[in-house]
């Protein structure tokens, strides 16, 4: 009696289980993607009908960047290469030599970005990237100087807030011109 019971409860052969699991695994590998969801996060200004009045600002505080339909840059009325934009913008914002023609104070500095409808998106994003990079570097320098840690998303919120208050990232995007759209 006991013997026959023992025989009946024989183990189920589970060696094919691995194959089934492999099949499922391969199915998921094929149908899914590891998407790199990265990008430059921006906050658009709320919509308002009237144009913001940038004229009332002092010209020394405005860093105007124009990008035309040929993807050329005009920064404060002078042509410039994108590679030089970051350093130039940093100097403008921090104004270490206290020059008369650069921003009075980082809190007063405002970046005015204007492009054409024919500008390449690639160029636009590169310019935006450089401007953001300039601020990131300034934030990092300030953070290193004051707290001794690099600026990152993980740092304490109070520190981040203090840094952002000292050097606020203000960018104003004007309505684009329309000369070069195909």
């Amino acid at each position: 009696m006991g013997k026959s019971k023992n025989r009946g409860s024989n183990e189920i052969n589970a060696s094919s289980m691995a194959d089934i699991a492999f099949l499922l695994l391969i199915f998921f590998l094929v149908t899914t993607t590891i998407v790199e969801d990265k990008g430059i996060t921006v906050r658009l200004p709320p919509w308002s009908e009237e144009e913001p009045d940038i004229q009332k600002l002092k010209t020394r505080n405005v860093y105007s960047v124009l990008v035309n339909a040929q993807n050329q840059l005009l920064v404060r009325n002078e042509p410039m290469r994108i590679e030089d934009l970051r350093e130039h913008a940093k100097e403008f914002i921090s104004n270490p030599m206290k020059r008369e023609d650069l921003a009075e104070d980082p809190t007063m500095a405002i970046i005015s970005l204007k492009n054409d409808r024919g500008t390449n998106y690639d160029t636009y994003l590169r310019v935006y990237n450089e401007l953001k990079g300039a601020y990131n570097e300034l934030w990092d320098e300030l953070s290193q100087r004051r707290y001794g840690i690099p600026f990152s998303e993980e740092m304490p919120a109070a520190y981040k807030k203090a840094i952002r208050a000292e050097i606020p990232f203000v960018i104003s995007e004007a309505e684009p011109t329309n000369f070069g759209e195909e």
């Binding site: 969801d37 430059i40 658009l44 709320p46 994003l125």
Partner: peptide, 19 residues
């Protein structure tokens, strides 16, 4: 598209890019 997003009150935008 940006103008339309602003009009719709969708202000958080991410320009997708590669490293």
């Amino acid at each position: 598209v940006k103008t339309q997003l602003r009009k719709s009150g969708q202000l958080r935008v991410n320009y997708s890019a590669k490293k």
